Computed example of a mutant assay.
Amino acid sequence: MLGKKLVTAQKRGETRALCLGLGMVACSMMMYFFIGITIVPSYKRSVWTNESVCQLIKATIREKVHCSYNEGSDDENIFRYPCLEVQVNLTLLGQVVKLYHTEDTVDKNPKCFYIPPNMENYSKVEKLVKTITDNFRKHQTFSCYFDPSRKEESVILKRLYPPEGLSFAFVWPSLMLFGGLLIIIMVKISQYISVLSATQYRTSI
């Protein structure tokens, strides 16, 4: 009677472990799919792939620029923020070009270097933009990224998805996939040993 209960408990444990392993594998596949349709296309679309050194030429707050979250949105969703315009010397090529924060900045508002993430509080946004301006004036030489084909003349300060960032994005799903497969393999080995032991026991009897 006790033996049957132990066998039943063992089978339940193996079933739960197998479900956990399969669940981890399924989750890792979903994460791979999500990365494949979001991060990887953005990484491939970026033309700013070569790193160089930029030297500040000018960093000025020009004006308050209209910005809307969605095209055609109502006036309630339109905000103003200080527009920081930055010009730098791309030292590798000796060209004076406009600098943007990331690839998204070029697409969303090519007038300004930086688009604040939250524009509902104007005083905080203004303080943030002034702090960024002061940092540029303190550190006038810095790394930047440019398009080696020069089809895109502007440069960016930071890539949204650099190669190391893309590699890091695959770390967690890879670990989850490896862990899930390891659990499944261990369960299968355990089941095989149990069957083998039972077969040997019956043979000896």
Rank of each mutant, 00 (worst) to 15 (best):
G72C: 13
K124D: 14
F146E: 04
S73C: 14
K158G: 01
V97W: 02
S174K: 00
L84T: 10
V129M: 06
L18Q: 04
G13Y: 13
E153I: 03
K151V: 09
K151T: 09
M1I: 12
R12L: 15
Q95E: 15
T102V: 12
Y100I: 06
V96L: 02
E85R: 13
S154A: 14
I156P: 00
E126S: 11
I185S: 07
A9L: 15
K64W: 05
S73I: 15
N121Y: 01
N77K: 08
Q200S: 13
L128M: 09
H139Y: 04
R62K: 05
G94S: 07
T8G: 04
G94C: 04
L157C: 01
T15P: 07
T8E: 05
R45D: 15
R12E: 11
N109F: 01
G165D: 11
C83G: 10
V97I: 12
L175V: 10
R150S: 11
F170C: 00
R45C: 02
N77E: 13
V88R: 06
G23L: 03
K130P: 01
A169Q: 02
T102M: 03
S143V: 14
L181G: 03
Q140N: 13
I57M: 10
S174H: 01
L18E: 08
A17N: 12
T199W: 15
K127C: 03
V187C: 01
R16E: 02
K64R: 02
K151E: 10
S197R: 04
I35N: 01
K58C: 09
P173T: 04
L20Q: 04
D134H: 04
L128P: 05
T60D: 15
R80G: 10
V195W: 04
D134V: 11
D147V: 01
